[in-house]
Amino acid sequence: MSRITLLALQLLVAVVVVVLWQLFATVPVFGRIWLPPFFFSNPVDVFAQIVKWFASGVIWKHLAITLWESILAFVIGSAAGAMVGFWLARQPLIAAVFDPYVKMVNALPRVVLAPIFTLWLGLGIWSKVALGVTLVFFIVFFNVYQGVKEVSHTVLANGRMLGMSEQQLMRHVYWPSALSWMFSSLHTSVGFAVVGAVVGEYLGSAAGLGYLIQQAEGVFDVAGVFAGMFVLSVFVVLIDMGVTLVERRLLVWRPAPADGRG
């Protein structure tokens, strides 16, 4: 299928969904409105809401806050996860001692931590960052840990035979292997940073996309909820595209996956 045909078909799906939604929300079929506006709003109102947000400029502040929280959560969570993962992988004894606790904390649905973070860190951005960090940390932690553990024995032996000291093995073998695992989970960890930020905002905040959706929901403004969801998904898609670009640069040495995103 050519790119243009594909794009046309993809657009067609959106058009059909929007038209059907608008139709069932405004025109009675068999004497009845199938999508009552109170519960489902309609595309025109949702679009109007989005335009209003961008025209008045209020949306930028919320986008900036959510973006900033996501970035902080990603950076802090990744750095901490990479360091702890690398360290524990090189200290099998300590790793064995902490193993049940790591599993326990990771098994905990992180949303329940949100009230505690709000209590500790207040309603500002840091309680959201903390929530995102707990999500990102474990993904990076497990990947880096695995990356160090799964270094090929042959590559390691080769490094030794070429005269590498323990420190040089770290730098030239363990660390690149760990980073490659971490980078391959980049999409997931960036996604979770955004989830942490938005869920945190939704549960209690004064700004951000999550806050916007929660506010609209509070006054039964369904158009506002849908508009917030739409802006949020575009926001996430844009970030994901950015991650793909970064990934391509960082993992040039990897064979292209036979089948996958790209």
């Binding site: 042959t154 590559v155 080769n158 030239h172 690149p176 292997s177």
Partner: peptide, 8 residues
Amino acid sequence: TDALFPWK
């Protein structure tokens, strides 16, 4: 087997 550093 392959012993080259794949990231170099």
